[in-house]
Amino acid sequence: MNIEEILLDKKEMSKIMTRIENGDEDLSSEILKHIKGARIIGVTGVPGSGKSTLITKLSSRLLEKGHRIGIIGVDPSSPFSGGAVLGDRVRMKDLNRFENVFIRSISTRGKIGGLSYYTADLVNVLDAAGYDTIFIETVGTGQDEVDVFNIAHTIIVLQVPTLGDEVQIIKAGQLEIGDIYIVNKADQGPADEKIKELNLILKKRENGWQPLVIKTVAVKNVGIEEIINALDEHWNFVKETGLFKRKINSRIKYMLKQHALEKLDKIMESEVVDSYAEQIIKGRNMHEIVNEIINKVGGEYGKGGIV
C-alpha cells in the first residue's frame, strides 16, 4: 500500500506522526515527497489572547466551506521531567462535530522558539494527507517565538487590549513576523486605541505586503468573516508573488536545520560533553573538539538513532 492510501486512515496517519515525532527520518523523507502545498497558517500570541478559540472559529467556518483542516497545537514541556500537559483541545471541543478536521497536540520537548523540533515534519504529514489548510498554534509563552515564520505562509498575531504592550509586542519581537494582526477580546478594553497604535507602527513589508489589523471578539464570532477574507487576500498575495515557492524552500531548510539541531542538542545534553569539558580545561584545541562533535551528529547519533 502506498503512503497516500495509508494516510487516508486517521489512525494510521496518527501512528505515522508518532514515529516521526520520535525521529524516524526515513519516514519523514518519504512523507516529504507527497506534500501537496497546503496553506499553512501560524497563530501566535501570549497565553490568554485566545489562540485556540480563534483557530476553532476560523476552522468551523472553513470546514463549512468544504476545506479539510489540520491543527497542530504546541505546548511547553516541563524542564524538570520532560513531560507535558497538552491542553489546547479543551477549547477546540466544538470541532469534534466535523469529520474533516485533525487535531494533534505536541510538546516542545525541550526546544525553544515556539515549536518542537519536528513540527514542520508533522505539518508535512497533514499536507500529504490532503488537509488543505493547516493551523499551527505556537506555545505562546512568548520570549522568541519566531520559528513559525519559517513554516507558515501566513502568520496571525493575536493581541488583547487588556494586556500591556510590554508583555505582548516588545518581548516577543512579533512586530516583524505578522501578516494579520488581531485585536481580540475587543469588548474587554481599549481596542480602538490598540488598533490605531498597531496601524501606526506596522509598515509595509519588504515583500510588498501591508499587514492588516482586525478587531474581533472571537468567542462571539465577531470579526471572524473579516479574518477569513484577509486570509484569502494574503493567500492570493502569497501565490501571485512567488512567496509560495520560497516558503516551501524555507520550510525544508528549517526542517533540515531542526533535524541536525535535535541531534546536536541530544549530544550536548549527554555525558559525552563532560569529558570534552575536561579535555578543554586540560588544553585540548576547541576547534578540534567542535569538529568531533559535528562528526558525531552524522555518526553514531545519526539516522533516527536516539540515545
Binding site: 490568554g48 478559540t53 500537559v85 491542553g87 489546547d88 479543551v90 462571539k220
Partner: peptide, 10 residues
C-alpha cells in the same frame, strides 16, 4: 448569551 468554555488551567 452563548455557552461558557473555561480557560485551560491545571
Amino acid at each position: 448569551w452563548g455557552e461558557y468554555i473555561e480557560p485551560v488551567i491545571y
